[in-house]
Computed example of a mutant assay.
Amino acid sequence: MASNGDSNSSSNPSMLHGHAAYVAAAAKETIGSYASTDMQNSGASDKQAAIEEMKAAKQASDEQGGQVSKNETLGKAEQTLGSVTGCEGMEEEGAKRQA
């Protein structure tokens, strides 16, 4: 999973992919806390890779004027997922999409 995020973030960072990868990694890390230390560590590593991809996507977006597409439904979903997973960037992006 981390290798997907790494190759995607280095070639074409995507905020949407980064968010999806973050949510999956957070779930993997949580399940790993009950199942195995290796799984928990892998989830934490994948989560960090997703954060790096989101940072790269944000930087690319900022360089292009920082515009996000407006979509009330997607924005609410993104903001809620950000709140549930503890991803402040996802919450902010969701709020921007709703504005």
Rank of each mutant, 00 (worst) to 15 (best):
M1E: 09
M1D: 15
M1F: 08
A2W: 07
A2G: 12
D6S: 05
S11A: 14
S11D: 09
N12P: 06
S14R: 13
M15L: 15
H17F: 13
H17L: 15
G18A: 05
H19W: 11
A21C: 06
Y22Q: 12
V23H: 02
V23E: 14
V23C: 10
A26K: 08
K28N: 11
T30S: 14
I31D: 13
I31K: 15
I31S: 14
G32E: 05
S33D: 14
Y34I: 02
A35C: 12
A35H: 12
D38W: 02
M39C: 11
Q40N: 07
N41Q: 12
N41H: 11
N41L: 06
G43K: 09
A44N: 04
S45H: 01
S45R: 04
D46S: 09
Q48H: 13
Q48G: 10
A49T: 13
A49F: 05
A50G: 01
I51H: 01
I51Y: 00
I51P: 00
I51N: 02
E52C: 00
M54A: 06
K55F: 10
K55Y: 05
A57Y: 03
Q59F: 11
Q59G: 02
A60Y: 03
A60V: 10
S61Y: 00
Q67L: 09
V68F: 09
K70S: 15
N71W: 08
N71S: 11
T73V: 08
T73P: 02
L74A: 04
L74E: 13
G75A: 01
G75D: 01
K76A: 14
K76R: 09
A77H: 04
Q79M: 08
T80R: 13
T80P: 03
T80V: 13
L81T: 08
G82R: 00
S83H: 08
S83C: 07
S83W: 08
V84K: 10
V84F: 09
T85V: 15
C87K: 02
E88S: 10
E88L: 13
G89Q: 15
E92N: 15
G94T: 00
A95L: 11
A95R: 14
R97Q: 11
R97N: 03
A99P: 03
A99N: 07
